[in-house]
Design a protein around this nucleic acid. Structure first.
Lengths: 350, 350
DNA sequence: CATAGTATCGTAAACGTTTACGGAAGCCAA
DNA sequence: TTGGCTTCCGTAAACGTTTACGATACTATG
């Protein structure tokens, strides 16, 4: 209204108002046309769409978000540095890929919220939430006791977690089926004659350490075998941690003949450490681990548990959408807790 | 004004207006107090801050962004899948870490924009830009001809690229000093008696392939040596690619005695392929590569070029800020083009 | 005392959308 | 003709901030 008609032709598109003036239509109609609302003449809609295209108009998302009370953004929080998660970064990237495809279908934008390994995840999430950034959030690398759950629940932000936790606020979660992996790997090793089997587990604060080691113990018991507590190895879940485990292993007087690795990041370090100690992986020590981009290029090729990370991401996204009221017509509400199965792909290492 | 005084105490905080009513102050003053503006009594400011804290008020970012015309978000675009970039994902994660710390100081939020390997990067960026998502953008995995540059330039969005390109729209960039790496590695190998040296280069569309191979050629020439074109290997920059290179290498009748790897993702595959062909890395074939989290745990330990990814990220962030008018007082304007040096860390593989 | 200056605050207009509501036209049946 | 539908569109009120501007009270200065 200040500089009306100053130069509507060549000026850069400023907003829906200019577009409306150009078309000599009210801005309400323009908005309805762009948003595919029913009560607008199909011919007018075509005019609007064409004008928007040719003038390069794109809706201002701040205005839209302000009015609609939703940002149309979903955040996927991960932590940088495998020292934390025990998964290689490619793990999360692939899951992200799957999540992405689902949200794209609903015109939701997915961004990765990468928490530095130096920052406290709770503080980081607090900042993100305060920003009102996302309509929904995916949490990964969950802890045994995870304060992030309560934070999101209190703010009523829909979320789902990749990973279990003792902290339960009723949100859905997905997790890898570590129980199944424990059972299958122990069964396999025992059937191949191993009686002294070591297992790894990550950080104390991570839940899966317990379920995995416990399930290994139970399965061994089923076979009449015993899990020696000195054969439960804990380390930083990265290459150096694997190397460290190998050194501890080689120092034992009654060394186990097999080991099951719960995460993928330690594998290379473990291989190196064993070789240095004169223990040949696959011959002197059976190894079962988790699949990663390079596990099949190790020598010996790693016998590992694999899964479709992309499909896991898809399931994750759909479960999140199912908790969001705005998508109730697409995904009926449910609060799912699901253990994602893994398949053993035989290699040369066991 | 509709339901004034309905229940200001227990109701959830709705906005700055309710906070103002609670304090019996105008919303203008509340806003100024929260934003640290000078013309507000220090005692009132304290009251406001305390009330905001206790009532859990956080400013709605959509409203703020709408009014200020800036979102306070910076986007770091990466591609998932090392098949594209030739860098492991940890590479970008670490750089991201450095970028993060800089932006956090300026209360800017950094998000990762992960483009699926299946989607066209230009389309992806177009979507992001249309969303008016970010005040600034960092581009990685640049191509030789990169349409993203013009897109951002046209929309006048400040950006910087990690990686060079022939497409130059005047933006600043940072890149690894591949020329320096080529020179140093060739010098080293030649001084150790190698005369037949192979090099790798990534996808045709990637610029660094040319600068690297060309610099290797030039350095070899300086030593009176010749780079056999059949010894310039191109492959998908991942483990499988490295394996493929090893097979091609072993099939050559006059096999080179050394190879320089421009990226890190192919290393494991190359090792495996060589071993399978009966060529022992480090003894039958000298290898110089790029450092990665597991390169020092390979057998033999990889001789590699390393750099501080975090520092690189910091430099990247500061260069971007220097192009943003809003931060002109912190970082004087400049358009920097910088080659980031790498240092050779000796291993056992050459 | 008059005036100027300063410190502090309230008022109201933006920012760019979406959407509830109502109005105008056209059509059809009674 | 009247009344009721349907189809289409314009009007204007939100959404929650920030900030230019002006108003008030107080202090200092002449």
């Amino acid at each position: 209204m200040t500089n009306r008609g100053s130069g509507e032709e060549r000026g850069k598109m400023k907003g829906i108002r200019e577009l409306a003036e150009h078309l000599d239509i009210s801005i309400g109609t323009v908005s309805r046309a762009l948003n595919g609302k029913p009560d607008v003449n199909e011919e007018t809609r075509k005019r609007v769409l064409e004008a928007a295209e040719s003038l390069g108009y794109v809706a201002n998302q701040s205005g839209r978000a302000l009015r609609k009370g939703a940002t149309g953004v979903i955040g996927f929080m991960m932590q940088t540095g495998s020292e934390i998660t025990g998964q290689g970064d490619t793990f999360f990237m692939s899951v992200f890929d799957g999540v992405q495809t689902v949200f794209a279908r609903h015109k939701l934008d997915l961004v990765a919220l990468l928490c530095s390994s130096e920052e406290d995840p709770n503080d980081y999430l607090k900042r993100v939430v305060a920003r009102g950034f996302a309509d929904g959030i995916i949490l990964s690398a969950t802890r045994r006791h995870d304060a992030r759950f309560e934070l999101l629940a209190k703010r009523k932000i829909p979320f789902i977690t990749l990973g279990r936790s003792l902290t339960d606020v009723g949100q859905p979660w997905l997790d890898l089926d570590f129980e199944g992996m424990a059972e299958a790997s122990i069964d396999r090793l025992v059937s191949r004659g191993h009686k002294h089997i070591a297992v790894t587990r990550p950080h104390d604060d991570m839940n899966l350490g317990y379920v995995f080691a416990d399930q290994c113990r139970a399965t061994l018991a089923r076979h009449g075998l015993h899990l020696d507590e000195r054969h439960v190895f804990r380390s930083t879940p990265n290459e150096a941690g694997g190397y460290q485990i190998a050194r501890e292993l080689s120092a034992l007087e009654d060394r186990p003949t097999a080991i099951v690795l719960i995460n993928e990041a330690i594998t290379v370090g473990l291989y190196r450490g064993l070789v240095e100690a004169g223990i040949k992986p696959g011959r002197d020590m059976a190894i079962i681990g988790r699949q990663s981009p390079h596990s099949q290029f190790l020598s010996p090729r790693l016998t590992s548990f694999s899964l479709s990370l992309r499909d896991l991401g898809i399931a994750l996204a759909e479960s999140l959408l199912a908790t969001m009221p705005a998508f109730a017509d697409y995904y009926p509400a449910r609060s799912e807790r699901f253990l994602w199965p893994m398949a053993l792909v035989p290699g040369e290492s066991d």
